[in-house]
Structure formats: structure tokens, C-alpha cells
Computed example of a mutant assay.
Amino acid sequence: MDLNTVREVRDARVRTPWQPGDAWLGGGTFLFSEPQPRLRRLFDLSRMGWEPVTQRADGSLEIAATCTIAELSGHGRRSAARAAPLFEQCCRAFLASFKIWNMATVGGNLCNGLPAGPMISLTAALDGVCLLQAQDGSLRRIRVADFVIGAGLKDLAEGELLRSVTLPARSLACRTAFRQASLYGLGRSGALVIGVLDPQDGSLAVTVTAATVRPFRLWFPLPPGAQELRDALDGAVGDADWFDDIHGLPAWRRHMALRLAEEIRHELTTDGAR
């Protein structure tokens, strides 16, 4: 879609004072999908030269905001990390064409803050941390689970830029389980639940997204029983936190989230689990 209110596109490498009507341009798959009447100027991030995925010496993984879904999928298929299959599972949750995969970015998906954003699901479940850069160059870090604060809402100041997301080495060494539900065969996620079992201390984290307006990551020092898990989810997610749109009513989303969470708990904690 043409953005006929945009009068200028600038290279983001050139420092320019931020003003009302400005926006960062990553892959543009959402930005150009519908009218953006408030926008007047875009700052193109495509020439920033950030390495899509960087393996750090401490074993952590830094994913640049400009990393495309195709690049992240490729890394996941090559990686020997135990949690690597989760990368492809979340990439596939886009249910998007190869054109979208080669343009849409991890940072764009997080900054849209949509409940069904699978990059939010992936990075929140693996306890990812966002690196944010303000207009004055100062940096701050915030957990992905706290970065998205509502449907389409995020903890991002005016002009602030999401630079990258870092996944800790410990999370990458965990065993994971993935469940997704949709009202349609090729529909948007109505509920997406991820379990992460830490082999070091036996703790279990269960992350619910898509069904809720923001990600909910519940951590248990020891794997819970079925009723304990259900009670914990009901205690953490209030009635107003279940998302409501054409892709699923709140009651259905809650039912599916609880059901999928129990499937994940059983898969990761039964005696036969590998």
C-alpha cells in the first residue's frame, strides 16, 4: 500500500532530530499493509549492517532487530542448541509466504506488540532481553515478557529503537515443547503455549501468548502438578487479559491455553520424557 502521507525516507545511519510523524522502517510488511495517516517521515534501518544472529562467547544468542524471519529460520535449522527446534516452530506460526519471510523482521514483530506475534512467543519463552536505544544514544534493557504490555502496546519511548534481543545460553540449552491452536487451518494463532524445562535445576517455565493481550511467562522451581499449573495460570491471567477478536472469544482462548499448557506439562515432565 502506498503511504501517501510520507514525504521523506531517510537513512537511519544519519543522526537526525526526531519529530512527530517519524517512524522506524524495518521490513515494512506491517507498515505498508494499511494506512498510516500520522506518518510523515521514515528512517530506513536496512543499511545499518547489523549481523542478523550473533553467537556470543558466553553462549548467549543476540538477534538483531533487522534479522528477517528467513534468516532466523535458517539459523535455527543449523543450530545444535537443544532449544533450536523452537525457532522453526515459531517461524512457521507466521503462516506467511516466502515473500513475507524474506522481509518481515524480528524487531518489527516485537514492536507491533500483537498478541499473535510468534517472535514475541519465541523470545519471551526463552527469557529474552531487549536492548533499546534512545535518541540521545543511551541504552536500556528490558525482558521481552515485560516489553509487550498489551495488545499493540509496548514499553517503548518516543523515538526509542529496538536494537536487538538476546537469548541467554541457559535457555538455549533447555528442552522445549510447543503447542498452537487456531480457529482455522491456516488462521492466526488463537493460543500459543511454550514450555521450557531447565535440565540444570529441573525448573519449568510456561509461556502463554496469542490467547492473551500480552505474554505471560510463569516460572516454577519444580514442575507443577496439573491442578497447580491450572491454578497458577488462572491466578496470573485475569478475565480482562484474555484477548477477544474475530480469531477467538476469550472463553475459548482460555480453554485452549489451559489445555495446551497441560499437554506441555505432561510432555516435559513424564518419566518417559527425553
Rank of each mutant, 00 (worst) to 15 (best):
residue 256 M to H: 11
residue 35 P to M: 05
residue 63 I to Q: 04
residue 220 F to K: 08
residue 85 P to Y: 12
residue 184 Y to A: 13
residue 260 L to G: 02
residue 96 A to S: 14
residue 79 S to M: 05
residue 62 E to W: 01
residue 234 D to I: 04
residue 30 F to T: 13
residue 55 Q to A: 10
residue 167 L to K: 10
residue 172 L to M: 11
residue 111 C to H: 02
residue 93 A to K: 07
residue 188 R to I: 15
residue 113 G to F: 06
residue 44 D to K: 05
residue 78 R to N: 12
residue 168 P to C: 08
residue 134 A to D: 15
residue 71 E to G: 05
residue 173 A to C: 04
residue 162 L to F: 05
residue 115 P to L: 12
residue 3 L to S: 08
residue 168 P to T: 07
residue 254 R to K: 15
residue 136 D to G: 07
residue 161 L to H: 07
residue 209 T to H: 09
residue 126 L to F: 08
residue 77 R to A: 14
residue 191 A to W: 03
residue 10 R to H: 11
residue 112 N to M: 11
residue 160 E to F: 08
residue 80 A to N: 15
residue 8 E to A: 15
residue 80 A to Y: 00
residue 217 R to S: 13
residue 163 R to I: 12
residue 245 D to A: 06
residue 162 L to M: 10
residue 187 G to R: 04
residue 118 P to G: 06
residue 14 V to Y: 02
residue 93 A to W: 03
residue 141 R to S: 14
residue 169 A to F: 03
residue 138 S to W: 02
residue 37 P to N: 09
residue 32 F to N: 08
residue 170 R to N: 11
residue 104 A to Q: 05
residue 231 D to M: 04
residue 183 L to V: 01
residue 73 S to V: 00
residue 102 N to E: 15
residue 222 L to I: 08
residue 106 V to M: 13
residue 86 L to K: 03
residue 110 L to D: 05
residue 223 P to C: 01
residue 42 L to V: 01
residue 69 I to D: 04
residue 242 W to R: 00
residue 35 P to T: 01
residue 46 S to V: 00
residue 231 D to R: 14
residue 117 G to I: 07
residue 27 G to F: 02
residue 129 V to E: 15
residue 245 D to C: 06
residue 208 V to R: 09
residue 7 R to C: 01
residue 13 R to L: 14
residue 38 R to L: 15
residue 127 D to P: 02
residue 167 L to C: 09
residue 200 Q to A: 15
residue 108 G to K: 07
residue 119 M to T: 01
residue 202 G to K: 09
residue 190 G to L: 07
residue 14 V to D: 14
residue 109 N to V: 02
residue 131 L to C: 13
residue 81 A to W: 04
residue 236 A to Q: 06
residue 204 L to T: 11
residue 104 A to K: 08
residue 84 A to H: 03
residue 64 A to M: 05
residue 179 R to S: 09
residue 187 G to K: 04
residue 107 G to M: 06
residue 43 F to I: 06
